[in-house]
Design a protein around this nucleic acid. Structure first.
Lengths: 219, 219, 219, 219
DNA sequence: TATGAATGAGAATTCATTCAT
DNA sequence: TATGAATGAATTCTCATTCAT
């Protein structure tokens, strides 16, 4: 991200490099800890340990546990938004765009389980960290607009039904993947099935695509 | 159970000394506390306060916080399963049955937000309380079988597509409602919209029904 | 002790029998619990459990934990004193009497490890239960007088040295056995040896007898 | 370690912030508390008070009460072992060496009653702290070897009997002193005598020396 | 004589955070 | 920028004991 300073600079600003490294280590450690135990269950001591920095340093960079959680959250949102941008949905035929988004959502959640638990924690706390975030507006998914455009294109070309709401659709795409993955432990326990086997996962993705595409397609 | 004294007497009784009542009060208080703060954030002291019983009594009836959480969880599952049974889906035409289940799921989650947060907590803990529960197998939703029957009936009468998987369908119905309600705080924050207004809620339910019914219907 | 009532009596005093049985069960359970965990570590709940009586009953028969401990202690002393009486040292030749007492002391401690831990507990508490005991004087070992007689007899017949102090001798006999058995765990740990194997125990007893008899014997 | 400020300054320093000093203060306080009340009866709060440090600090330096007890135990053993080394028994004539060790043991136990109660506590807990101690092997009394050498020397010079076992002898020397001092409260209560008066103590030491020396001497 | 329910005081331990350098 | 030492306020849980029948 930040353009690393040249070696010449290194001599003059040796500490800024370490500083940045420490910050990043702390954030990564905090993300893992919060993801694993939730905000309430996370331990500041463990975060420091994971980051291999002195606990006091956490408070130097971040004011307190909540601020740190907010930073982790912002980064998590930033990360998925950046990935979404890479999909370039606007360049795809409408049906491909919807399928691509659906598959991406599933894959992202699967690859980033921490994102799900972070969101669960934040919702338990009524999104108060997000509300306190100045970066929150920037986290607003521009995807909704992109998706709106896709739906409109699809409608005009006659492949999609008219009147589709991009926000509802987005939430549905997310929900179909999120619930399965986030609640997989209770679901597996209740239904005595392994929902995370490769076969089960493939089956679920196919099902989700089926649900979503049938929903948007005309006729 | 015990012959409760008349209502007139009840007011003057110094302390209940009614085991069953105490147990129930504790469970209800614990459910509320766990729902509001999660397992980690819940405070035993507050549960006792909410239940208006001596803190020590919690440990008399339940061994510890985890056991109490498990009891709450078992009761929560028992409650929704009982409600599901009341739908009598087997007695309805297939399409009505699917719509009824979808609406019920939405309504139940809406009326019982504690169920969602309890499940989130349990998933954060990898369903370890459920796994320790001897009552877990009984919590297995018999609904899946009922739903399988509904789908088969619908298929035979030509209104539903063949090859539908009841478990996938059930998870989708749940997921479409769950995600919206459980994550409403972050979603509202990110999209700067009030997703819980009556209009928004009605709209979401309509959308969900639309998604599900289009998915199951033939053609 | 108490002459059990005849069957005829049983009908008229059925409860006194159960009562006595409960008392005895409590005492036995308390003895085991105190022996295993010490006074501080003993748990009233566990004593009730061990005795298979309601916890409230402990307080019916004994006022509190300390009183119960005192009763256990008194019984323990009474038991060893009674056993000592059975030795009939006065009827034995002096040397035999000393050896018999030494062997008995070792054997008794070995067979009644609870006696050692009870005494340790009581000493940790500066013998305050014993001081509060009205039965304490009766626990005074009449053995000291008997031993004094034995020593005098031995002295007169020329087998023992003159001037031996029966109390010192008694304490030495006890100490040589007590320390080995009471501290066997730390000794075993420190010296990496199993001091409680049969061979080790036999060896110790032989050593103790050797020490004591050499001490009392003339020349 | 850290250059301690002058004594003049010491008085004005608000809080020590001297790790080593805090650790030592805690250990000393813990030793006294454990000695007085046993492991079970000791209170973490009181230890902190005695040490004049924040209770939380105990957990900073020692993980928990058991670990603290182990540390106290290790130090207590280390202390007596160090003192034993100072006796230089190898440099004394055999008979003097045995007498010196006997007198030292008595004196040490008399001056360090905490050592006795600590051992009693540890034995009540079946030496589990010692077994968990990595320093335990180092606590193995090298005295046994020294004593073995003394006995051999005495045997060769004809003053001691052959075949004496140094471990048995060591345990006997310890036991004769230990029992009298550790159980002095119950013994005093039972025999209605003050066993701790100066005269009584001198008498006991003389008796012990007599017993031990008669045992080792030839003829 | 017996018992299930209830409790206040206190126990060890945890935790986020600050101090002092 | 970094850190070891220190802390107050909880937090879960325990324990002997009493209540009410």
């Amino acid at each position: 991200m930040s353009t690393r300073s040249s070696e010449a600079n290194e001599a003059t600003e040796p500490r800024s490099r370490d500083a940045e490294r420490s910050r990043i280590a702390i954030l990564a450690a905090a993300r893992d800890e919060f993801a694993e135990f939730g905000l309430g269950g996370a331990r500041v001591d463990r975060i420091a340990e994971r980051a291999d920095v002195n606990k006091r340093l956490l408070y130097y960079y971040f004011d307190n546990k909540d601020t740190l959680f907010r930073a982790v959250l912002e980064e998590a949102y930033g990360h998925i938004r950046a990935a979404e941008q890479q999909l370039h949905l606007a360049d795809l035929p409408p049906a491909d765009a919807v399928r691509t988004l659906t598959e991406f959502t599933w894959s992202y959640y699967l690859a980033h389980p921490e994102f799900l638990t972070l969101l669960n924690s934040e919702n338990l706390h009524r999104a108060r960290h997000l509300q306190a975030s100045t970066r929150a507006p920037a986290l607003n998914s521009p995807l909704i607009q992109t998706l709106a455009d896709v739906l409109e294109r699809g409608c005009k070309t006659g492949v999609f039904r008219p009147g589709l709401d991009p926000l509802q659709l987005y939430i549905s795409i997310a929900g179909l993947a999120y619930f399965y993955l986030s609640n997989n432990h209770t679901l597996s326990a209740i239904f005595s099935r392994d929902l995370m086997s490769e076969a089960a996962r493939d089956e679920r993705l196919a099902h989700i695509c089926d649900v979503i595409l049938r929903y948007v397609h005309k006729g």
